Each structure stands twice: as structure tokens, then as C-alpha cells.
Simulated assay, not measured.
Amino acid sequence: MADKNSPKKDDKSGDAREERLKAALKANMARRKAQAKARAASEDKTGKDEG
């Protein structure tokens, strides 16, 4: 009986884990995108100052 309950518990925790990982990945990608955008903007300013 305990074996039947364990997979259900694992599925729920697995789903919760997957949701947490998905949210963390989305936040990480947004942060990286913002960093890349900031770097590109700073490079544009540096390039304009030099030339």
C-alpha cells in the first residue's frame, strides 16, 4: 500500500519541482537578456565616444 502512495507523492513533488525549475529558468533567461541588452547599449555608447 505504501508503494502505491509513493509514486503519487513523487508525481506531485515532481510537478512542483518542474514548475519551480521552469520559473527559475524563465527568470534566468530574462536576467541574461537584460544583461545582454545593457552590454550592447554600453558598447554603442563606447563606440560613439571613440569615433
Rank of each mutant, 00 (worst) to 15 (best):
35 Q>S: 10
44 D>C: 06
30 A>W: 05
48 K>S: 02
41 A>R: 12
18 E>P: 02
45 K>A: 12
37 K>F: 03
41 A>V: 09
31 R>C: 03
18 E>Y: 15
28 N>W: 03
38 A>K: 11
36 A>C: 08
17 R>D: 12
48 K>Y: 00
48 K>R: 09
49 D>T: 08
23 A>I: 12
21 L>E: 14
27 A>W: 08
21 L>F: 11
10 D>A: 10
10 D>M: 12
15 D>M: 07
15 D>F: 11
41 A>E: 14
16 A>Q: 11
35 Q>N: 07
46 T>N: 04
24 A>P: 00
11 D>I: 12
31 R>H: 07
42 S>K: 15
12 K>H: 13
26 K>Q: 01
18 E>A: 15
39 R>E: 13
39 R>Q: 14
47 G>Y: 06
47 G>T: 02
17 R>E: 14
29 M>D: 07
46 T>G: 02
14 G>T: 04
47 G>F: 03
11 D>S: 09
45 K>S: 09
51 G>D: 09
30 A>S: 11
19 E>I: 07
28 N>K: 02
10 D>E: 15
12 K>T: 14
20 R>G: 01
30 A>R: 11
20 R>T: 06
47 G>W: 02
24 A>D: 11
12 K>C: 06
44 D>H: 13
42 S>N: 12
47 G>M: 06
28 N>M: 01
13 S>P: 02
35 Q>P: 00
27 A>C: 01
19 E>Y: 04
40 A>D: 12
26 K>T: 00
36 A>Q: 15
11 D>C: 09
51 G>I: 01
18 E>Q: 14
20 R>E: 15
47 G>Q: 11
10 D>Y: 15
25 L>I: 05
27 A>M: 05
29 M>P: 00
21 L>D: 15
50 E>V: 12
43 E>L: 11
36 A>P: 03
49 D>W: 09
25 L>E: 10
11 D>T: 10
17 R>S: 11
28 N>S: 02
24 A>E: 14
43 E>C: 07
20 R>P: 02
15 D>R: 08
13 S>E: 14
40 A>Y: 07
25 L>F: 07
12 K>L: 15
34 A>W: 03
11 D>R: 08
35 Q>M: 11
20 R>W: 09
34 A>S: 09
40 A>K: 10
10 D>C: 04
16 A>P: 01
27 A>S: 06
28 N>R: 00
37 K>I: 05
11 D>P: 01
33 K>H: 10
23 A>W: 08
51 G>A: 03
11 D>Q: 14
16 A>T: 04
22 K>S: 01
41 A>C: 04
40 A>E: 13
24 A>M: 08
22 K>R: 03
32 R>H: 05
39 R>W: 03
30 A>E: 15
34 A>Y: 02
50 E>L: 10
46 T>Q: 10
26 K>F: 00
40 A>H: 11
24 A>V: 05
44 D>M: 13
16 A>L: 08
20 R>N: 09
24 A>H: 03
43 E>S: 08
17 R>T: 10
38 A>W: 02
23 A>Y: 07
26 K>L: 01
22 K>C: 00
